[in-house]
Design a protein around this nucleic acid. Structure first.
Length: 588
RNA sequence: GCGCCCGUAGCUCAAUUGGAUAGAGUACUUGGCUUCGAACCAAGUGGUUAGAGGUUCGAGUCCUCUCGGGCGUGCCA
């Protein structure tokens, strides 16, 4: 219907164009908005305001000329010029009612983009290091990413969801050593645990299964483990301390033994993360291993091409990437003095790999603390001759946790965090998914745990679910009353839906597809959440309205028309909740 | 110091991406269940959009500065 109005305006535009009143290259200035205020009609267009200045004409006068040129329409009751020059259209009552039939016909497909598109999107999100369980900060990225993936899919894009598993590099060695030290402790050695090791309880569990399966196979006396290890922090250098421990670990254990300890940690934690996400309704098409980039030589390959293209140089024994020449603040090390490649080196290879897989767009969802990383990755893409405009990085701000009115710390290494699993169990998956997605991602988020727990019933997700359950309940009542639901009769009598409540609902339902598209394009899932809240609100109002009395009216025609409307509402709520990863219960 | 993000009702957040009188939830005050579920509805109180300039028909939104908060500024990942 909105498109219909736009067509009319376009016709008028072309007519005025022929009269030489306006130039012919400004058709894109025709933009139709839904009005916020019903006094402004159903749709508003600001084209006269936008064009007036360019052609040196009074906006209201121009608006009048446009309106005079509008072709007649069966569905528009009147067109008004308001304010500084808005063109407002008022639809005839019932003009949009056919959307009910559309919804009931398309069911779960209503709102989804039917045309489809060839624009393929790669979406990487969460990608937390497999060094510990997910915490509530990761939960935000998970809920946001999963919902965005659903929205993009609904908008017609083929979406590839990927988790980048950082199973290579120094952090993983630190994990292996942490496991090994706890294991030595279980073997009876008196171990002083390094401050930079992973201190969470889950390390004990992994060490315990290692001990269970391999007994004392990896046991070495404490003094050999700590031989020639420099002092730990705070007085010593904690980084050098843990690096020396890693070196000792690798020399005391055979390569195969080290791999065993290493994998024990990696596989247990990865499996844990995977299960956690699955339970949270967050699914992936691919779990991409960082180690595969190293082993297949892709990291060496990109470093070679950077070298050949003259983007690398040596300084202080390290190899640097001249990223400052491509928009970064400063140059970055890709190979450390000790010969190890940095995280950036593998990440350059990873992004090159993604692009070579043939996606039209690559979306990375990162924690906001990585924002400084964007310029250097983009620089690397340019340096490799890749199109860096295909990379879109969405930064999700931190969820700041409050417990008992105080900020709670979140450090994986110190083992002090609230896990995502804990949160899910405390407030439930539905509430957690919804809560996370209720704010836009660049908004800092205060997450009061006590509030989330104690007031989980006040979470707006229940409000929406309740509207869905209510329609189901009406249907049950229908059966109890031995009444029949005749969809065909209802659809024939949509004209009986003449109250303001019903009109408002119909308009809201008709807006769903464009809302979905807008949310996907803006990468803003919260728009869908707010839309559903509005829809639920309008249904609850309708249901309670004194002047409507009952949906289950005595009169067959009216009852069936109302049931059609109610079922359409239920369908759209179910469709929306599905995209949000929230269940749509039939009773609560 | 420099860079990025943010600042909207007592609290938590929206605002159709530059549109018309800045809206919801929560809290507080009031009214509504003799049966389609009250996990609901209706009404009210609550604002110098941190502050000051600027851009234009029009600014919470864009630009500049100031104040306040978060993050970053590693040969960590």
């Amino acid at each position: 219907m909105k498109d219909h109005f736009k067509e009319l305006l376009l016709t008028a535009y072309k007519q005025l164009q022929q009269q030489g009143l306006i130039p012919d290259d400004l058709e894109s200035s025709i933009k139709i908005d839904n009005t916020r205020n019903s006094a402004h009609g159903d749709f508003a267009c600001n084209m006269a305001l936008a064009l007036a200045k360019k052609i040196g004409m009074n906006p209201r006068e121009l608006a009048q000329r446009i309106v005079d040129s509008l072709p007649p329409s069966d569905s528009i009751a009147k067109v008004e010029i308001a304010g500084p020059g808005f063109i407002n259209a008022f639809l005839k009552q019932g003009a949009q009612q056919q959307v009910i039939a559309e919804i009931l016909r398309q069911k779960q497909d209503y709102g989804r983009c039917k045309a489809g598109t060839k624009h393929k999107i790669h979406l990487e999100f969460v990608s937390a290091n497999p060094t510990g369980p997910l915490h509530v900060g990761h939960g935000r990225g998970a809920a946001y990413g999963a919902t965005l993936a659903n929205l993009l899919t609904a908008a017609g894009h083929p979406v590839h969801r990927e988790y980048y598993v950082n199973d290579a590099g120094r952090q993983m060695d630190i994990l292996a050593v942490s496991v090994w030290l706890r294991y030595l402790d279980l073997c009876g050695e008196e171990v002083i645990f390094p401050t930079n090791g992973y201190q969470g309880d889950y390390i004990w569990d992994i060490a315990a299964s290692l001990h269970r399966e391999h007994a004392e196979k990896f046991l070495h006396p404490f003094d050999t483990v700590y031989a020639n290890v420099p002092a730990d922090g705070p007085d010593g250098d904690k980084e050098a301390h843990i690096d020396a421990l890693i070196a000792n670990c690798r020399s005391l254990l055979t390569e195969e033994e080290y791999r065993t300890v290493f994998s024990q940690g990696l596989t247990e934690i990865t499996a844990n993360i995977r299960q956690d996400l699955e339970e949270f309704g967050v699914h992936y098409d691919e779990w991409f291993a960082e180690s595969s980039l190293v082993e297949s030589g892709q990291v060496d390959e990109v470093i070679d091409s950077l070298q050949r293209a003259g983007h690398l140089y040596e300084k202080n024994g390290a190899v640097w990437f001249r990223s400052s020449a491509l928009g970064d603040e400063k140059d970055r090390v890709v190979i450390r003095e000790n010969g190890l490649k940095t995280y950036l080196a593998t990440d350059i290879a990873y992004h090159a790999n993604k692009l070579k897989r043939g996606y039209d767009e690559i979306i990375d969802i990162w924690g906001a603390d990585h924002h400084g990383y964007v310029p250097r990755v983009k620089a690397s893409m340019q340096a490799l001759g890749l199109d860096d405009s295909k990379l879109e990085v969405l930064l999700v701000q931190f969820a700041i946790l409050y417990r008992g009115g105080e900020k709670a710390q979140m450090s994986t290494r110190a083992g002090e965090f609230v896990s995502l699993r804990q949160l899910r169990h405390e407030v439930g998956n539905d509430a957690a998914r919804f809560f996370y997605v209720l704010r836009k991602c660049e908004q800092h988020m205060d997450f009061d745990l006590d509030l989330a727990k104690s007031q989980s019933k006040d979470n707006p997700v229940y409000y929406i679910q309740y509207a869905h359950a209510r329609v189901c309940s009406v249907l049950q009542k229908l059966q109890q009353k031995d009444m029949e639901y005749d969809e065909a009769q209802g659809l024939e009598n949509l004209g009986l839906l003449d109250t303001d409540y019903e009109q408002a609902l119909v308009i809201r339902l008709a807006q769903y597809p464009e809302q979905l598209l807008r949310a996907a394009q803006a990468r803003e899932p919260h728009q869908l959440a707010y839309y559903l809240r509005e829809l639920a609100n309008e249904f609850h109002t309708y249901y309670n309205a004194k002047d409507v009395k009952k949906i289950l009216d005595e009169e067959d025609e009216r009852r069936n028309a109302r049931l059609c409307l109610s079922l359409a509402v239920r369908q759209v709520i179910a469709n929306g909740l599905e995209l949000l990863g929230v269940s749509a219960p039939e009773s609560m």
